[in-house]
Design a protein around this nucleic acid. Structure first.
Length: 324
DNA sequence: CGCGCAACCTGTCTGC
DNA sequence: TGCAGACAGGTTGCGC
């Protein structure tokens, strides 16, 4: 759910609201969140620090703190980061013991309401930063120094798709020789970062590419189309404030609307908006995958390039018998 | 090393 | 209505 557009939406909302504020206190309500580090350690490490900025790498949300520290949050499947503004009428702690609806409907309409609160931080202006997560897959890691951050992210996050780093050439290089299906290739965060199940399907459809085609079968024009498809799909998601199929809410507790604009994802049996073909659902790498068999062409496995045997001059093209 | 898959969790939906 | 089983947007670790 929270893929690049969702995390970036949250980042953009948070940054102007929390930058410059001091963290009064932090409370971890589920030790799983900071595992294997003890919650107390993270709480103590956060208390008193000032937030210098909010960044993002792939699907990771980064709170840049003074003292060269960074709080790295990952929402996984069902995590939400919510900002309770300083002027909200009710304290979260009070609400948890009373009617959750009292604080205003937006924060609480989702199934991931405050009963799944895993982490909260009190800010110096009276506002609160909340982390809720039904399935408890989400993570919070407090890192020290530029080095600590890099060492954490390097093995996990690859190229930023909305940066100059992603080009048809760089994508082709990453895909060269790979036999994994394109769908799985896009889901690998150490390649192109930030793409999840939704935007992988949407990007492949835009690029006219079949999810089962081996990544290494792409020729330059396919890489070009795929870069365009990735960028288009992610930007559409951003413009719509993300996708809310189920649990996702932005930092204000509002739904995104990208789910209304899906071309193929979750649209099994419906007509393809491009060619009218019937959208199908298959499973690739254990994930639901939606595509249009009509206009997403399957590429042939690219034959291993052989040392070109010198072409005998005058040899005819065997398949057609025609002269070039 | 590349690849496929189970595991980590809780909630919801489907079919009997 | 009750209940077992399948499934859900991500990542990691294991075996081959």
């Amino acid at each position: 759910m929270p893929e690049l557009p969702e995390v970036e939406t949250i980042r953009r909302q948070l940054a102007p609201e929390v930058t410059g504020l001091r963290i009064e206190s932090a409370e971890v309500l589920d030790e799983r969140l900071t595992r294997p580090v003890a919650p107390r350690r993270v709480e103590r490490g956060l208390g008193g620090r000032r937030i210098e900025g909010v960044d993002r790498r792939g699907k990771y949300l980064l709170l840049r703190l003074d003292g060269d520290a960074t709080l790295v949050l990952h929402l996984r499947m069902t995590g939400n980061v919510l900002l309770r503004p300083a002027d909200a009428e009710n304290e979260v702690a009070d609400l948890m013991e009373t009617d959750p609806r009292l604080g205003g409907p937006r924060l609480y309409e989702s199934s991931t309401a405050l009963r799944h609160l895993r982490f909260r931080m009190e800010l110096e202006n009276g506002g609160e930063l909340l982390f809720t997560d039904v399935r408890r897959f989400g993570t919070a890691v407090l890192l020290q120094g530029r080095r600590g951050l890099d060492e954490y992210l390097a093995p996990r996050v690859g190229v930023e798709p909305l940066s100059e780093e992603l080009t048809p050439e760089s994508l082709c290089r990453m895909a060269a020789g790979r036999t994994v299906p394109l769908k799985s290739f896009l889901l690998t965060q150490t390649g192109v970062a930030g793409i999840g199940n939704i935007y992988a399907d949407e990007a492949l459809h835009r690029a006219h590419l079949h999810p089962l085609s081996p990544a290494g079968s792409m020729r330059p024009e396919h890489c070009e189309a795929l870069v365009e498809g990735i960028v288009d799909a992610l930007e559409a998601g951003l413009a719509a404030g993300g996708s809310s199929i189920d649990d996702y809410r932005d930092a204000r507790g509002e739904r995104g609307s990208m789910q209304d604009e899906f071309l193929v994802h979750t649209r099994e049996g419906l007509p393809c908006p491009r060619c009218g073909g019937e959208i199908r659902r298959i499973v690739v790498g254990g994930r639901s995958t939606y595509f249009c068999p009509g206009c997403q062409t399957r590429l042939r496995r690219r034959p291993r390039r052989r040392k070109a045997a010198p072409r005998r001059p005058g040899a005819k093209d065997a398949s057609t018998g025609a002269a070039p």
